[in-house]
Structures are given as C-alpha cells and as structure tokens.
Design a protein around this nucleic acid. Structure first.
Lengths: 230, 230, 230, 230
DNA sequence: AATGAATGAGAGTTCATTCAT
DNA sequence: TATGAATGAACTCTCATTCAT
C-alpha cells in the first residue's frame, strides 16, 4: 500500500497520499467548517476508500489540523455518516421529482417529458459529487448499517411512488403498457449503467459512451412508452 | 492475545472481526492451498474491504498461520491481485459466451435463446462469489491500476464483439433494429441493476425483486428483439 | 462534539467521564471563581486522578469555559498545587489543635479529652473533601515535589510538637507511659486505618466499620492512657 | 507534565521519562515475557501512575517493542489488571498466614509469636514491590472496579478469619480481652501507618522511623495481648 | 512449508494550551 | 474576563511484514 511522503504544503499535483493543505482560515463559523470538512471528506473517501482515507488528509484539505477536525466530528465514522446524510437526501440515482409519469391526459408532447427526464438524469452523472457518493455508497455502505438502512428505505419508497404514477398513466392511456411500465426500474437502468461506467471505466471511454447511451436510452423510451395511436 | 474463538469449521456466521479457523491441514499441495487462500481472501475482502481485511484473518480462514500465508503470497496486494485475476476471467457481468446474437438465420426459436441468455445471467447473480467480486471491483478497483486496466480492456473487447454479432444479426433480419441492438449494453442493463440491488439492498428485498425483474427483462427483450414478421 | 449532557446543577451522579455543567455565572469576583474552580478540581482529580482529569470537565463543573479557567490558573499543575495548598493547611490527618496532651495537671476528666479528640478526628472522616484530599495526596503526591515537600515538613513538625506535649504530660504524671506515648503516631493510627478503608472499601462497609472502630479506638486509649491511680 | 526526552538505549540514570531498554532477548517463552512485562509495568505504573505510564516505556523496560507487548496483553488496562492479580493474592497488608492467634493453649511463649508476626509484616514493608502495589491500589484502584472488587472481598474474608481466631484465643484464655482483640485491625494499624509513611515521606525519614515504630508496635502488643497472669 | 513472537510504521483519538474574537 | 475553535504533541492500539525456530 502506498506509503505517504512527508506532508507538503500547498502541493498541487495529484500526489496521491497527502492532501493539499487549504489556506488556514482560522476561526470559521462552525457550519462553514463542517461543510468544508464534508467536501474534503468526500474527496478523500472516494479517492481512497473509507479505510485508507486519513483524518489528517481530510483535515488538511479542509484547512485545519487533525485535532481541529475532532472539534466538529467525533470520529471518522461520524464524518462518513454525516457525509452520506448530506449527499443522500437530494441526490441518489432514482431520485427524480418530475418522473415521466406526470404526464397529463392532455396533449402534452411525451417527447418533451422524456427529454426533461433524461436531461435531469444525465446531468447528475456529470456531477462529480454524485458519482463519488454513489461509489462510496456501493463500496462502503455495507460497513455502515445506519447509512445503508436510510438509503434502502428511501430507495424503496421512491420506486413505489414512481411505480404508482406510471400505473395510473397506463390506466389513463397516457403510457403504453410495456416492460418499462411493469417495473419503473427498467426506465432507470441505463442511467445506472452509465454511472457504473463512470466509476469503473476511464474518463475518456465514459465520456465517449455516455452521450451515445443517452441517445439510445431516448430511443428505447420513445419506442416503448407512447400509447398506440388509435 | 486470544481474540479468536476456538476453531470452527467452515462457519459462515456474520461475526465481523474474526475469521473462523479452518482445520489446519498441514502441508497441502501448493495450488490447493492457493485456492483455499483465495477463497478466504474473497470472503474477508468483500466483507470488510481491502483496507480493513487482515492477513491474519485470511490466513485463519484458509487454515494456516500468518507466516504460512506469506509463503504463498508476497503481500496483501498480491493476494488481492491474484484474487481478481482468478475471478475476472470467467466471471464478470457482460461475460457471456452464448449471447443473443448467436442466432442462426435458420428458424431456431428466438425465445429459447433469450431464455438461455437470461438463465445464465441470472444464475450468476445467485453466485455469492460473483456478487462479492463485483462489489470488490467497484469498491477497491481504483486502488489497483493493473487490475482495473485488465478489467477495462476485457470489458471493451467483450462489448465490441457482442455488438458486432448483434449488428450482423440485424443485417440478417434475425433481430429487429431497436434501441437494444443499437447498444448491446442496454440488453444487459437490467442485470447490472439486479446485481447492484444485491449489493445495496437487503437479502429479502433482493430475493423478492429479482425474479420479477427477470420476468420483466424477458418481456422487454421479447417486445423489442424479434424481427417484424413479414 | 456534544459529549456533555445538558447542564445539570450540582449533580453528584457517578457518571464517569463527563462533568455536570454548573450554571454559567458570568463575571464572578475572582476569588469566588477560584474557590469554585478548586472545588470542581478536587472532585475531578479525586474521581479520575490527576492524569485522567480533564481541564474541560473541571471548567464545566466550575461553570465556565476551558479558556476561562486559564484566566485563573496557568496550567493543570497550577490548579493541583493550589488545591493541595488550600486543603493541606487545615486538614490533614494529624492536624489537631486540641490533642490529648493538652491535659492539665488538674482534675479535668481524661475521658472528656479523649472523647473530644475522637469527635474531631472521626468527624473529619465524614468530610468528603478530607478523604478526597488524602486520596489525592497519596495517589499523586509523588508527582508533585513541591506539594509533597510541604506536606512532609508539616507532618514532621506536627508529630514533633505533639510528641513533646505528650512527653511532658507523661512526666507530669497525667498520662501513663506506654507504647502510645512512646510514639504519638500510634494514637492516630486507627484513624488512618479508617481513612484508608473509606478510600478502598465500599461505602456500606466503611460506614458499618467506622463506628465500631471508633469505639474500639476509645477503648484502646482508655486502657493505656490514664495514669495508674495511686 | 514532564515531556519525554527522545528514547535512549541502555540509559542507566533515574532519567524519569524513558525506561531503560533491557537487552532484547528475542523470542522468549510466553510466560517468561509475561513476567518481565509485569515487572516492568509495576515499575512504570507506580513511578508515574496508570494514566501517565506509557506502553512504550513498559515495553522497552521489558525488552521488547510496543507492538510486541500487545501480543501478550490486549490493552493497558489488561496489563494493570494482570499486575494487580499477580500482586494481590499473596501480598497485601493484612495477608498473614501465621497471625498472632495461632497461639496454642500450651505454654508457647507469646513473645515469640509476636516477634514472628512483626518480622513478617515489617519485612514486607522493605519489599519495594509490596509498597508500589499498595500505592497503585490506593491511587488507581477506583478506576478498576474488578480489581478493587477482588481486593475488597479478599480483605473482608481475611479480617473475618483472623478475628475468629483471635476470639477463640481469648475464650481459651490465651489472649487477654482488649481493644486489640475486639478488632484485629488495630493489631495491624501501625503497619499501615508505616506503609503510608513509606509512600508519602522521604526515604531517609521512613528508614529512620520504621524501626522505632516496629519496636513501639511490639511494646503495644506485649502490653495488651498477654493474659493476666493468675 | 509452517509457526507465531516480534518489529515498526502508522492511524485514530485525546487533551493541555493558545488566541482571535 | 470569557469563549470555544484551533493547534500540536502525545498516546494507545493495529497490522503488514519479518524471521528464528
């Protein structure tokens, strides 16, 4: 495992092992510091994993000392949990306030809804924090029962509400009955695929595949969702 | 210090923190020992992550001592790499020797092919080792450039070959041109979804959703793959 | 980090680890604050020992902040020394202004003197502060040369003066010559025994034994001190 | 509190702060190492107190490394407890297998018994390990409930058995009924006094007072214990 | 090949003390 | 005076790795 070089101030390179020390703004309001710490923690945890991340590096990246970090969080796990709580709520995968199903019986173009949905979903994939959080959740979630419990409950709730909406839309004749409306998860599956690619593949490949995937995803939805025209 | 409970054979308990000690079979043939070690390592790594797994626990689970373990692998990383190499080849997600595209122009029923494909894919999801390896790959891959490089290359090669087969099948009129044939990844996406559920959701939920997902997956494929009957 | 329970006034609970927060009386006269601080310090030091006591807890128990504490004492050691100085003077074991030896040749009943002596000595054993201070002195004294030096000098001076008084009383025929008058320490030994019991034994036992010890102590003195009646 | 100078090999002086490193005998039988460690621990704990003692110094004094120490004891507390267990059994204050009361009805000279008793008791006071353990027990006992619980039980049992023997001796006319036979603790009280002097006073003083105390103790016993000659 | 005591380099955590406010 | 965020120096404990047996 990589041994750390002795700490370097203001290092700029991607020097893996020691975080760049942010300028030390002494005495920040507590909630600003908390935010800085969580930003730093997201970076360090997702770069190295929970176990290999060092409190010292998180502190340095947040612009304070190791000891100072402990004035805000009582342990490494506490940092992780707070981080997950902050990121989980408005963030994860299937979270989508304007799902396809909000289609009104009126003649709103389904295409526009699909495009809005895809726009929101694929935009989130460009957000580093979203990808890093998902990565962390998959990688380390099982070591944090509370965190995973929260996520599980959220996830189930979300799927159920979206499934209900889709069901209604099908009954109203707004969406065609298909595999996609049987399980809304299939509507989101390609997005998960894109997210996992971003995690596992190199940037170049992911950046090349994602737009094509989005276009094909659009084709899939437009092939299966629109009701049979009478 | 005695942290270990007295040796228990092949126990599977969730006891986090201490591996069960396999019976000490002294002087095993080298390659059998290697296999035992890798099995033990897969368990420990996937249960706790690379960083938190302890060589002592891996050794104990494999039925030898810490020192003995080092007679077979020179370091913890070496164990991890060997593990990934063993698991990667025949195992990961898109690896499938009999993909849909092998359809012969002749009248073989497409349905049978689809069912064969689904059978193979979803069976792998029941294999703990497959899920654990995927989990590990996502969680720790980025810390092991060689491992991830190999996986990336494999993955690209696999997709390309399958894409080519599908393309040919479309040209032959065996498969309908659709979003699914545009990018074969969409054919596999629901399987990835099921795998991630197995990692993130609790067993009960995963076991309940997976069969429904498989059925819906089948419906999706049967809706989009068969050529228009003339 | 919030380790402290919401402030409780003058709580006495055994809660090891966190001091109750006294109400924050802002800007107290300096010497009142000092007293509050020393009271708090006695409690914390004797409960946990010098090393394990925390400035934060002492401060909280005294009703101010860590920083405020340092306005009154320059260091943890300074608090300890001030505490010992305050407690040592009027307090310790052999300190007794009305020792047995003050016996006048006249016919004052010796019994009354003995009873006065015992009353004073055993009353001090009921004083928590006395016991805590003795405990602290024995436990930590050796780490504080100045403190222990002072105590030693005091102790020697006290013994000598009492011994001189007793000697005179013997020569005057007021006390019988015995082991007890050979070394006055033997007169006090049972009190030390009671004090150590209070430190080491549980409250119930100490409370049960002390009165019996006092009665037996009285018997001892009455058996040996009165001069032979001519 | 004293800052430690950087560690010095084979230091000889009383350098308070870093233990002398014993020559490193690699690979000692486990129980020998345990003994060496407990010896080292007694020294360090009693010199600095439990809190201020450093595992590194204990290890060095025992001739191994910090990490090696943890192969034998799982924590600092575990060392302390093991130490107390080793020392408590045959050692503390009132432990005495040949108490005065073993007097046979026959004409054995009581004086010889008294002298034997005093010899044993005051000899223990010369044993550094005895004094250090008592000091530790008083100083740190309250932080180790199990240890103190054991000691308390032992102590009560011992007193009871000695009291019973003395009672019988009185009934048999072998000892005179007096304050000393009312509570055997009074027989031992001067020894406790001597022990506390050894802890609190300087060596010179203690060495000067102890023999006089012993002689006076003898006088006390000989004045009160022998039965009235008929 | 195998054992397990031993090493040594961290890592998390604590806390006396400082200092900007 | 008082506050409490911040520092920095320990300290305990862990664990990959080595090596005498």
């Amino acid at each position: 495992m990589p041994k750390k070089p002795p700490s370097i101030l203001h290092a700029v390179a991607q020097d893996p092992g020691t975080a760049r020390r942010a300028p030390r703004n002494r005495r920040l309001p507590a909630h600003e510091r908390r935010d800085q710490i969580l930003d730093a923690a997201l970076h360090e945890f997702s770069e190295r994993g929970f176990g290999a991340a060092r409190m010292e590096d998180i502190a340095a990246r947040a612009g304070l000392s190791k000891g100072g970090l402990y004035a805000h969080f009582s342990s490494k796990s506490a940092v992780f949990k707070a981080l997950m709580q902050r990121m989980l709520l408005p963030n994860l995968l299937f979270d989508d306030q304007q799902p396809l199903a909000n289609t009104r019986p009126s003649g709103t173009a389904l295409a526009a809804l699909v495009d809005g949905f895809l726009e929101g979903a694929y935009a989130r994939l460009e957000d580093d924090r979203f990808i890093r959080t998902l990565h962390l959740l998959i990688a380390e979630g099982s070591r944090f029962p509370e965190v995973i419990r929260d996520w599980r409950a959220d996830h189930v709730r979300l799927i159920q509400s979206q499934q209900a909406m889709v069901q209604r839309a099908v009954q109203d004749g707004v969406l065609r009955d298909s595999a996609l409306t049987d399980m809304v998860q299939l509507i989101h599956a390609p997005i998960l695929l894109a997210a996992v690619l971003r995690i596992l593949q190199d940037d170049a490949y992911a950046r090349q595949v994602t737009p094509r995937l989005r276009a094909t995803h659009r084709r899939l939805l437009m092939e299966l969702l629109p009701p049979d025209s009478p």
